[in-house]
Design a protein around this nucleic acid. Structure first.
Lengths: 148, 148
DNA sequence: AGCATATAATAGCAACTGCTACTATATTCA
DNA sequence: TGAATATAGTAGCAGTTGCTATTATATGCT
């Protein structure tokens, strides 16, 4: 009732993260690192800036996530031949191996989290949250409107 | 489509937090601190452990959040006369003053975030996310089942 | 060519989060 | 009463996140 949707989302996301991390404790990879890797798999060679924009985090946040993944031997930074300021990001073979083991667990966790929801309700949940995300996302990018 | 509900929730919650914090930058209070204060307002005198359980964070997480709020002069720790290990938490008058100014902003932000959603859809969103949260919450507390 | 501006990435700082381990106090039970 | 156990809270460590400022390089304009 007096529960704000923002806090509700935050709580739920945190519980999700916690459950995910508890299941991957031994593999040494966290929920968010796994997510970054799944993005990277579909955009190999991407530079940090565009990747940060893609997942909507600040460049510095991505930079440090990449730091850890490089240190863990899962991601490789290669100098961009066209721009000496930039890095291109690539997965290592080790990351690919990890991905396969994770997918199953992630799907199982998603199933547990949405237990009791019908297929239609799951779709609706995703649809509604996506619309909220789009609203919030749009709001942030409105800084660069005035020059148009 | 291949967007996991967990990551979607996480993203949306993060964007929400970011938007909230951008609006309260000058007041020096963050989204999560505000949330803790709203809980505290309804449970003055509560001890840290029960409060942590209430908002489902680890005791140490709450402990450090309280540290910051005490330092900011918004919360007061008083020794529990019945248990010398425990603290009772109280809001300072300054916190009450802050609360009033925030509520309006929070409601406006919620309205922006749910723009384009009908009243029925908003209710459904909250209902669905609450059910997911309950699933995740239950799953964590299952450690202490076997002794029953 | 040379200067002004923009961009890619990072450094410092701080808040949020949780795991494990620990201290201090309380409770239970022999 | 005294030892074993449980509980309240905290310390250390590490990952995630973003703000502001900075460095290095690229681009645009004169």
């Amino acid at each position: 009732m007096n529960e704000t949707i923002g806090f509700l989302l935050n709580d739920t996301a945190r519980l999700f993260r916690r459950a995910f991390n508890a299941r991957t404790k031994d593999s040494g990879i966290t929920a968010l690192q796994w997510r970054l890797i799944t993005y990277l798999k579909r955009h190999e060679g991407i530079r940090q800036g565009p990747l940060a924009e893609l997942i909507e985090v600040e460049p510095i946040t991505l930079s440090r996530m990449v730091d850890r993944l490089v240190e863990a031997g899962l991601v490789e930074r290669r100098a961009d031949p066209a721009d000496r300021r930039a890095w291109q990001l690539y997965l290592t073979p080790r990351a690919g191996a990890l991905l396969n083991g994770m997918r199953e667990m992630a799907e199982a966790l998603t199933a547990e989290a949405t237990e009791g929801l019908s297929a239609a309700e799951r779709e609706q949940l995703i649809d509604l949250v996506e619309r909220v995300r789009a609203n919030l996302s749009r709001r942030i990018c409105q800084k660069e409107k005035e020059t148009a």
